Every structure is written in C-alpha cells, then in structure tokens.
Amino acid sequence: MPHNPTSLNIAVFASGAGSNFHSILNYFKDHCNVRVVTLVSNNSKCGAVQIAIDNGISFFHYSKYAFSGKCSNIALKLIEYLKHKDVSMIVLAGYMKLLEPEVIRNYSNRIVNVHPALLPAFGGKGMYGDIVQKAVIDSGVKISGVTVHLVNENYDEGQIIFQKHFAVEYSDTIETLSQKVKAIEHKYYPKVIEQIALGNIHKIDDRIFLKNKIE
C-alpha cells in the first residue's frame, strides 16, 4: 500500500519472542492511518528482531553495547532516531527495560504498555511474564486479565486505558494463564493502540476512557 503522508508512525519496543509485535504488525499492515515504522530492542538476538527483518521493518539496537565509546547518553541517540523516523507514538510489547526520563518526557502521554494482569495488582519492578502468573495463582484470586496503560517513570503506574478480564479456574497453571493472557493481548492490544493513535479517547480528571467499545 502506498505511504499516506498524513499517517501516524508507531515505534514498537520489544525484548523477547515478539508475538505481540507480530500481531501488531499484522493488524496495521494495510492500515490507512497508522504505520509501524520501526522496532526498538535492547536484545539484538531476540525473536522480535527476526520478525522485523522478515517484514522489512527497520531495527534500532538500543543498548549501551551498541554505542560503546561512541555516545555518553544513548537515550538522546534514541530520541534522535525516533524523530528521524517521524515517530508519534511508542508501543511497548514485552520490552524488558525501564525507559529513561528523557524518552518519557519527549513522548509524554504517547507511550503505552500492555501488562499481563489487572493493574494495580501484580505490577511493579520485576513483575513480568511467568512471574506475574505465578503470583496470580499463589494469591488465590478468581479473576485476572490484561491491562493497557500509559507509561510514566515508574513501573506499571501509568494511567489505565483498557482492561479485559478472564476467570482463573482451579485447574489453571502458569502455562494456561499465560495462554489466556496472550490470546487477549493479541486480539485487543492492536485495537486499543489504534483507538489511542486516532485520538478516540476521553480524558476525565486523571482517568482515560476509550470512546469506542472494543469487541
């Protein structure tokens, strides 16, 4: 599809296998208004990088090792790169690194993350992947789910935008909960990203709501 000069450009940040990155790429592949223009990763050998290569998406290796002896502040190099790519929104999809304050300030209220539980429960530093699902099981809660939220300078403390829940059954394991989470993330995260990118949100005091119901 020809490039729409008025389209909004997204950068996806990922550190792992890249299943969410892949679902986001597929969703926006032929989108008229939103484009994924680059992948940023601190792990040059992760699955997400191979997905980017396979789909002709540019990759930025965001690691101090990539700039060893060349730059004292790699955050500024990242910001420079994102501006060069005309990025308007950052999407975290399994990104395992806290963003620097400079990046957050430059993209204030334009960075979103997906968390594999219903925040504010089971969030914070070190809470990711199977660690979250083990905590869910150990707690005995009967409901869990997925949260999409804005990103600030603290782990998982940004404003909540969207949540989707599911029942935690007595037979659930870390593996089955992870499967439930992935299914929801792959189905709903791209749709939430789309609504945010298109400005279809309400801001009421310190709360954010999507204008359109997502099915």
Rank of each mutant, 00 (worst) to 15 (best):
M1L: 11
P2T: 10
N4C: 08
L8A: 08
L8K: 15
N9Y: 11
F13T: 12
G18A: 05
G18T: 10
N20E: 10
N20K: 05
H22K: 15
S23V: 12
I24L: 13
I24N: 05
I24C: 07
N26K: 11
F28E: 00
R35Q: 15
R35G: 03
L39N: 07
G47P: 04
G47D: 06
G47L: 09
V49W: 02
S58R: 14
C71Q: 13
S72F: 07
N73K: 12
I74G: 06
L76G: 00
L76C: 11
Y81F: 13
Y81Q: 02
K85W: 05
K85V: 07
S88N: 13
S88A: 14
M96A: 10
L99N: 07
I111R: 00
N113M: 07
P120N: 02
D130G: 06
S139I: 06
I143W: 00
S144W: 02
G145D: 01
T147Q: 05
V148E: 00
V148R: 01
V148T: 12
N152T: 12
Y155G: 04
Q159E: 12
I160Q: 04
I161L: 09
Q163C: 02
H165L: 01
F166M: 09
E169K: 10
D172L: 10
E175R: 13
T176C: 04
T176V: 12
L177Y: 08
V181G: 07
V181A: 06
E185K: 10
E185H: 06
H186N: 10
V192D: 03
V192N: 02
Q195W: 01
A197S: 13
A197R: 05
A197V: 15
L198R: 15
G199S: 12
N200T: 14
N200Y: 07
I201A: 07
K203Y: 05
D205N: 13
I208D: 00
K211Q: 14
N212I: 15
I214W: 01
E215H: 06
